[in-house]
């Protein structure tokens, strides 16, 4: 644990007024990924395994973008939020691996 700032100190943050541009970019990205995902399934003729990995990849990219920008996880002072989500995701990976392995077995 390298984190050693004293948390009881008020965080002095510089005032930056963010414009909406970044968030709109994330929105457009999310929309595009969503449309591609639905289109890939609606087309229905593509390789099944490829589509599944494409869908999962796009979902992860979209989720990542939304969490980084909309939920401000890219901002400073988000060490523990990241720990929280990463820890949760770690457990989820175990769980999902379990579900998949066990239904294949």
């Amino acid at each position: 644990m390298t984190e050693n700032h004293s948390a009881s100190q008020p965080q002095t943050q510089r005032h930056r007024v963010e414009g909406p541009q970044k968030h709109i970019v994330v929105f457009v990205l999310s929309m595009v990924l969503t449309i591609i995902a639905f289109a890939a399934v609606a087309a229905g003729k593509v390789n099944k395994l490829f589509v599944i990995f494409l869908l999962l990849g796009m979902a992860i990219v979209q989720a990542f973008a939304q969490m980084a920008f909309w939920m401000h996880m890219k901002d400073r002072g988000h060490f523990f939020p990241i720990i929280g989500i990463v820890g949760g995701v770690f457990v989820v990976i175990m769980l999902v691996a379990l579900a998949l392995l066990w239904t294949w077995w």
Binding site: P81, G88, V89, V91, V92, A99
Partner: peptide, 23 residues
Amino acid sequence: LGFWLFLGAETVLFGTLFSAYLA
């Protein structure tokens, strides 16, 4: 901060539901 930690717990909650669904 507390809410973020709660969301960590929620991640596990939904993950468990996803794993049941996948199974």
